[in-house]
Design a binder for these strands. Sequence first.
DNA 1: ATTATAATTAGAATAATTCTTGATATCGGT
DNA 2: ACCGATATCAAGAATTATTCTAATTATAAT
Lengths: 142, 142
Amino acid sequence: MVTQNPDFSAETEIPEEISGLRMTRQRQEVYRILMQERNHPTANDVFMRVKDRLPNISLATVYNCLEALVQHGIIRQVNFERESSRYCSNLQEHGHFHDQSTGVIHDVGFKPGINLADVLELPPGALVEDIEITLRGKIAAS
Amino acid sequence: MVTQNPDFSAETEIPEEISGLRMTRQRQEVYRILMQERNHPTANDVFMRVKDRLPNISLATVYNCLEALVQHGIIRQVNFERESSRYCSNLQEHGHFHDQSTGVIHDVGFKPGINLADVLELPPGALVEDIEITLRGKIAAS
DNA sequence: ATTATAATTAGAATAATTCTTGATATCGGT
DNA sequence: ACCGATATCAAGAATTATTCTAATTATAAT
């Protein structure tokens, strides 16, 4: 299971600006953590982790940073049931498989050449802007 | 758009017990509302509606009833983002299309003969127990 | 009828998130 | 470099959906 991105160390340079968003120190560090941790961390997970490098950061700021990054399409916000929101730097269209025995969340890609409209009975005229697929279950011991 | 189920009036008899759950007066009335209102009401929506017939019911009871009904597979709980949970008496496997211009939620069935495993790159050995599909977008004027 | 069990109620508690306010930092123009 | 305007940040208060607690009431089982 991939939980760390070795291409994204604590020293990786992050540009001053990404898609029109000013990358302040706080946003950089929050973003860096999401690139490193592929575990779908919650805001609080990020908060605890980011304090290593920015001891004075506040939880509200982490929320603000995450919101700004989501709004600018730099990361994705993912919700399972009514649990705390989780955040994800995988921008490829994908769903999530929630393994109930371990609690681990796996990204699930679409098979190539699949069109959602071929699979679902969409209401006539529906223009889909965003899809969210969540699966829950177990992984059989191999 | 179907929002009311005419087969399910306020006078419809509901059995004493459904799939092992004792159908108390409160549970009956909560269930009745979900059969009537196909709008995916929140707990609070149900609460306000049910007070017509049970003026002394409490919101906690509505939550308890909804939870009991969900647990026994009689209704489904549906979550959009981190909004209040909504409840749904459509037990057929289906997803939801959230029309962002009107706020209306449409049930979306699967086309016959579709197998999710044909569409998604599931992790090896994954045994899917539950699927949740949410779409967001608009409906083009016809 | 009596006792045991389950359900209901009202209000307090919880937890994630958002809001508010004042302090800092950054940007653009001079 | 300085100055005002704007954006961001920090700390804690406020909000909101939901759950929990404890006491009461209803139902079921003996």
